[in-house]
């Protein structure tokens, strides 16, 4: 039921003939997106006192996640080495679903407790929303990771 022919570590693109390596598309697009976002950072005035150094730092930091994001979008999964043909039928999909559901519950609980604490604590109403949102993202990552690892190790 599987076709392992011509599978590669980073896979091929589902765009066009399907023979182009996915990274051959992802890397140039990722670099361009990173560069454009660095220009936005300079324009927004968050790139620091030296715009060239700031833009270079932003471009370097954003090029990798941008490349990986484009790779995910253009990748033909069936061309990826070791990828299961029916991932939704695999146990990893069950772990993912259970861990995500549990993490959502944790985040709701934590957000409720944090909202109560910020309301009651003096100066809590002035909490920086960027920090709060980063906390929510961090908590969801941590919760998901722990839950997934527990499910994996107990399987």
């Amino acid at each position: 039921m599987t076709g392992d022919d011509h599978r590669t570590k980073w896979g091929r693109s589902k765009i066009g003939s399907g023979r182009v390596p996915a990274m051959a598309i992802a890397i140039p697009f990722g670099v361009v997106i990173g560069f454009l976002l660095s220009l936005v950072a300079v324009w927004a005035g968050i790139a620091g006192p030296d715009p060239i150094v700031g833009a270079a730092a932003f471009a370097l930091c954003l090029a990798v996640p941008a490349t990986m994001s484009v790779w995910v979008l253009v990748l033909d999964r069936s061309s990826l080495e070791g990828a299961a043909e029916l991932p939704e039928e695999s146990i990893e999909s069950r772990w993912y679903t259970k861990a995500a559901a549990g993490a959502q519950t944790d985040v709701i609980l934590l957000a409720g407790i944090a909202a109560l604490a910020l309301t009651l604590l003096p100066g809590g109403s002035g909490a920086d929303p960027r920090i709060v949102l980063l906390g929510v993202i961090g908590a969801s990552f941590v919760s998901f990771s722990i839950r997934y690892q527990v499910l994996r190790r107990t399987a």
Partner: peptide, 21 residues
């Protein structure tokens, strides 16, 4: 696992009775 198109871990868990397919 290859015949079924799933991961090896899925087969292991099914055989151990830890995962109902």
């Amino acid at each position: 696992a290859d015949e079924l198109g799933v991961s090896r871990q899925t087969v292991i868990s099914i055989e151990r009775g830890k995962f109902d397919p």
